[in-house]
């Protein structure tokens, strides 16, 4: 890549830059800051699009009473059951059970606090959709 060809397509990087290796005038490699490249922006937006789609499905299910609010916070934190279980230091089957609304609403405070701590929110926030 030539130094003049380094793309500067604003997008996922916000105001930040990343470094691209490019060949300067004298044929020597230099480090050139780039504010982004469109193909990367496209691929990154695609990945987030999938995440948001999944999240809106979960919100629907939580509103319909099929899943507990914990499912929403898990999805929002880009976690699956295995990862959440590790953070909360609980077994996977317990986390899976807590995704059931009828089980979740009877959870003792110490477990709720545990989950709230993982997501960095209060117990009240944990128990509802935002």
């Amino acid at each position: 890549m030539d130094k003049k060809e380094v793309p500067q397509d604003k997008g996922v990087l916000d105001h930040w830059h990343n470094i691209q290796y490019a060949v300067g005038e004298n044929g020597k490699y230099t480090l050139v800051p780039s504010s982004g490249w469109e193909p990367v922006n496209i691929a990154n937006y695609q990945a987030w699009g999938i995440i948001e789609e999944g999240l809106s499905q979960v919100i629907e299910k939580v509103s319909a009473g099929e899943l507990s609010p914990l499912a929403y916070h898990m999805e929002k934190g880009l976690m699956d059951i295995a990862l959440l279980a590790k953070y909360a230091r609980l077994s996977r089957w317990r986390v899976k059970r807590h995704l059931r609304p009828d089980v979740f609403c009877r959870l003792p405070l110490n477990l709720l606090e545990k989950y709230a701590k993982v997501f960095n929110i209060s117990v009240e926030e944990l128990q509802k959709l935002p």
Partner: peptide
């Protein structure tokens, strides 16, 4: 999806291009 993932592995995660 697979393609997007591959592009991200190739260009996004600080690869210098």
């Amino acid at each position: 999806l697979y393609l997007g993932h591959m592009i991200r592995m190739q260009e996004e995660i600080g690869t210098g291009g």
